[in-house]
Write a protein that binds this DNA or RNA. Structure first.
Length: 479
RNA sequence: GGUCUCGUAGUAUAACGGUUAGUACAUCGGGUUUUCAUCCCGACAACGCGAGUUCGACUCUCGCCGAGAUCACCA
């Protein structure tokens, strides 16, 4: 049987770290089995609808490489994929229940329901609408809520992550199927859609675990086979024990993209947050995840979000891609992350800069703060030079004469490449009897005035002979 | 409050009825001709508590404690 999974978000805003995993796992499961993942937009709550949210969702999935096989944009045999456009289908299914006496119109006013609820609270008994079920409900028509007529009973089921589950009759109630505005509730719509679309695995957050018995009752009333149910534990906020949500400042997934996090790293980190394949492997490509993923190894407790580790993954991926695919391959993804000063610089030069600095990037956006001096003359800051911990014991005149020595030595280099530069630097060490820390700090600071930079010989090579010497001279005469 | 779920270092996790309880992030220390980073080496640090089953339990059972979810015309 073909495996069909779905990601069914409501368009109420961006996708953040806390909820994107319920797109990743369905994707992995589907792809692993040559099945399909459906994207379905659950937009039945008009009050919470946010304009543009659907595009945001699509954008996020596309960036992560979670391509859906059916849904908005790509279409498919079960169109439409927006619940708001499927009202006729829900009504059709609802009518089946009405005919069988399993659904009824609810004429009770919200105020009345509130009264019932209070009665129960006062008596300290749980409120169940079915205990107040009207005896002669009116014929259902649009404008009245439609309720399911539940039959209190026990259920047992298997959750692929949580294991054997069971519930008693007290959790079943007459849930609303169709709201008075004519839109179905989530509780009803997702069952109808999953059935119509042939979804075999329902993967969603654990918060739906409590309402599962009501869904089971619905499957039963329709004579539907139960899909496999997979509850995904929450991702917890860095502080406290609550699930990560926008209120905790959960960043949108695409915000990380804009900060220079690679999609590979994001996918890798998120997939491995609360899942592992039993080995000590940490770095997984999307293809490897598809191969190794298994639902029964999903952790059943919540996992805390750790941005730090995401950045570690990012560093790993930056180096991995660079090493395996080459500088150019990674460079093409850095376009938006260079400093203002690099605007006019040509690609060849930028690739060179990138090649010597890539392994110190945590995110691609670090390029902005780390490469400025490759593109424009650094502002000479003598304090930085004089107060450096290796240089402060030297007098200014000593620094000046050292710089002149350096200039003379480097001027003699015919072939300006990293090896020759290193050879010259080594000779200078011998001639001056200075420690590497002293001589190299001096040169490094004089040509960059940056808190840190790549290896000295590489920096000099990329900067070029002319620029390097000019900067050294400028500093020497500024002292 | 009812119902349900979860509980290995700060974090993410592994393993097993018998191990010095493994790995990674973080932290701290050290090494690689400067800095930052990489890389390498090292240190710190965990089975929530209490019973029971057992020759033996982190692992199985029960209780407790702690944490979370849910009880909407939201999803």
């Amino acid at each position: 049987m073909e495996i069909v999974t779905r990601f069914a978000p409501s368009p109420t805003g961006y996708i953040h770290i806390g909820n994107v995993r319920s797109a990743i796992y369905p994707y992995l499961l589907a792809k692993q089995n040559n099945g399909k993942m459906i994207l379905r937009i659950e937009d039945t709550d008009r009050a919470r609808y946010v304009d543009g949210a659907t595009e945001l969702i699509e954008d996020t999935l596309e960036w992560l490489g979670l391509n859906w096989d059916e849904g908005p944009v790509v279409g498919g045999p079960h169109e439409p994929y927006f619940q708001s456009e499927r009202k006729d289908i829900y009504i059709k299914w609802a009518k089946k229940l009405i005919e069988e006496g399993r659904a009824y119109a609810d004429p009770t006013s919200p105020e009345q329901i509130e009264k019932y609820r209070k009665e129960c609270t006062d008596k300290k008994i749980p409120f169940l609408y079915r205990n107040f079920r009207p005896e002669n409900p009116p014929k259902w028509e649009l404008g009245l809520p439609l309720r399911f007529k539940s039959e209190p009973k026990s259920y047992e089921w298997q959750d692929e992550v949580m294991g054997e589950m069971s519930s008693g009759p007290e959790v079943l109630d007459d849930i609303i199927l169709i709201k008075k505005d004519g839109f179905p509730t989530y509780n009803f719509a997702h069952i109808v859609d999953d059935a119509e679309m042939g979804v075999t695995h329902v993967m969603r957050g654990v918060e739906y675990l409590s309402s599962t018995p009501n869904y089971l009752a619905l499957y039963e009333a329709f004579g539907l086979e139960r899909p496999k149910l997979v509850s995904l534990p929450h991702i917890l906020a860095p502080q406290g024990n609550k699930k990560l949500g926008k209120r905790d400042g959960a960043k949108s997934v695409t915000e990380y993209r804009d900060d220079g996090v690679l999609a590979e790293a994001m996918l890798n980190y998120l997939a491995c947050l609360g899942w592992n394949d039993g080995t000590e492997k940490e770095i997984y490509s999307k293809e490897e995840l598809i191969k190794c993923f298994s639902v029964d190894r999903i952790q059943n407790s919540g996992a805390r979000y750790d941005e730090n580790k995401l950045y570690w993954y990012n560093g790993q991926w930056i180096r991995k891609i660079f090493d395996e695919k080459g500088a150019e391959a990674l460079y093409t993804r850095t376009k938006d992350f260079w400093p203002e000063s690099a605007k006019e610089a040509d690609d060849d030069y930028k690739v060179k800069v990138f090649s010597i600095i890539y392994d110190r990037l945590k995110t691609l956006s670090d390029l902005r703060s780390m490469t400025d001096y490759f593109f424009k003359e650094p502002k000479i800051d003598l304090d930085m030079l004089v107060k450096n911990k290796f240089l402060k014991k030297m007098s200014e005149s000593e620094i000046e004469s050292l710089l002149k020595l350096v200039v003379r030595k480097l001027s003699d280099i015919n072939k300006w490449d990293a090896d020759s530069i290193q050879a010259a630097l080594n000779e200078l060490l011998n001639e001056t009897k200075k420690k590497p820390a002293e001589l190299f700090s001096l040169i490094r600071i004089a040509i960059s005035f940056a808190p840190f930079s790549p290896a000295l010989n590489l920096t000099l090579e990329v900067l070029g002979k002319e620029t390097s010497l000019a900067r050294l001279n400028a500093v020497a005469s500024a002292i």
